Amino acid sequence: MKSALLLGGTQFVGKRLVELLLNQGVTVTIATRGRAADDFGDRVLRLKLDRTDEKSVKEALHDKSYDVVFDHTCYSPVEVREVLEALDERIGKYVFISTVAVYDEGEQLVEQDFDPRHFDIHYKPRQEYVGMIGYQEAKRASEAVLYQQAPCPVVTVRFPFVVGLDDYTERFAFHVRAVKQGNPIGTTNRNAKFGFIDSADAAAFLLKVAQSDFEGPINAGSEGSISIDELLDRIAKRLEKSYSYAEDEMTNRSPYDLGISLAQTTALAHTSGYHFKQFDALVDEQIALHRSEK
């Protein structure tokens, strides 16, 4: 891989991936709306485009070519179709950042539980994909466009919740702060299971699959799962505090409250030679990271 386009790339996993690519001597282009500053200086090339504006996408990409495209910012099948049309056959490989949300409910979900190659695509702009159901449909349809229409090899990486030093969402921190401050937490299902991946692991995995000959959907993340009840119990024990739930499940609602279990197995990644941080160690690391915050 000599050249890479990151659709996104200025935050969280994308930012880490840019650094890994640069360290390997890859010519990196980041494509964003140009609203967020980055620290890459003249080490990267930049394109300005808006995924919700077809004209801006096609104008930015019409004469470009890349060995690998990493797509961090797609929230509609329309958007991935526009990138494919703009670049045509000038893509060596397409790595799509997907999600465990493409699956229906379960605790040991495997890649075959959702097959994008046989999914009926209905094209809608991102604003029409509302809530968790909309997010699921958008990511499913986007994967389907890639496998059914892309002129190049495709990998769709299905991540669980991402955590790490650079987590701007502060979802994990929300729970630690709530326990520290004694704030009751709202949840619709305290026993639903979910998983995690460390942001450094996520970036390293994206690089590895891009450099490999692997194609297809693949789950990535620390092997294991946890419920909100189990997470709060662990935080409370580490902080020597107690916790409680809000009487109204929508009050101070947990950002990890999906209402259903969405936890996947990463057996395929492991058998393919990829390894991730041990689950319990990752959880404890995140608790320690946020317990010292003011």
Rank of each mutant, 00 (worst) to 15 (best):
D38P: 14
C74M: 12
L61Q: 03
D42T: 15
C74N: 08
G25S: 07
T27L: 07
D38K: 09
K55G: 08
R33I: 07
R33L: 08
A60Q: 11
L61N: 08
T32I: 12
H62E: 03
D38H: 15
T52Y: 00
L20C: 03
E59I: 07
C74D: 06
R33G: 08
R46I: 02
A60D: 06
E19P: 05
Q24S: 14
A37V: 13
Y75L: 00
V69T: 11
K64H: 12
F70W: 09
N23Q: 15
V28R: 02
G41P: 13
I30L: 10
D38Y: 13
D42A: 01
R51A: 01
G41T: 04
F40L: 12
K64L: 03
V44T: 13
F70E: 06
V18W: 00
K58N: 07
D39C: 14
R51L: 14
R35H: 05
G34I: 11
T27H: 02
G25H: 08
A31F: 04
V68I: 15
Y75C: 06
K64S: 09
A60W: 01
R35S: 09
D53G: 06
G41N: 11
V57P: 05
D67R: 01
A60K: 04
T27V: 11
L20S: 12
N23Y: 00
L61A: 07
T52H: 03
A37M: 13
R51H: 09
V44K: 13
D39V: 08
A36W: 10
Y66M: 01
L22Q: 13
V18M: 08
G25R: 02
T27E: 12
A37E: 15
H62R: 13
P77L: 09
H62K: 13
V57E: 03
H72D: 09
V78A: 02
D50R: 02
R46H: 02
K48Y: 06
H62W: 05
V26S: 06
N23F: 05
V28T: 07
H62Q: 12
L20Y: 14
E59D: 11
F70Y: 15
D63N: 12
H62C: 09
E59A: 03
G34R: 00
L47Y: 12
L21E: 07
H62L: 07
V57F: 09
G25F: 03
V78K: 01
E59W: 01
H62F: 06
V68T: 15
T29D: 05
K55A: 15
Q24C: 03
L20F: 00
T29N: 03
D71C: 11
L49G: 08
D38C: 12
D38N: 15
Y75T: 00
Y66I: 00
L47R: 10
D38E: 13
D53L: 02
S76L: 09
R35E: 10
D71V: 00
D53K: 01
L21V: 06
R51D: 04
N23P: 10
L45P: 01
E59R: 05
D71M: 04
Q24K: 14
T29E: 04
D38T: 15
D71P: 06
V26I: 14
V68C: 10
N23G: 06
P77C: 12
D63M: 02
D67K: 01
S76I: 09
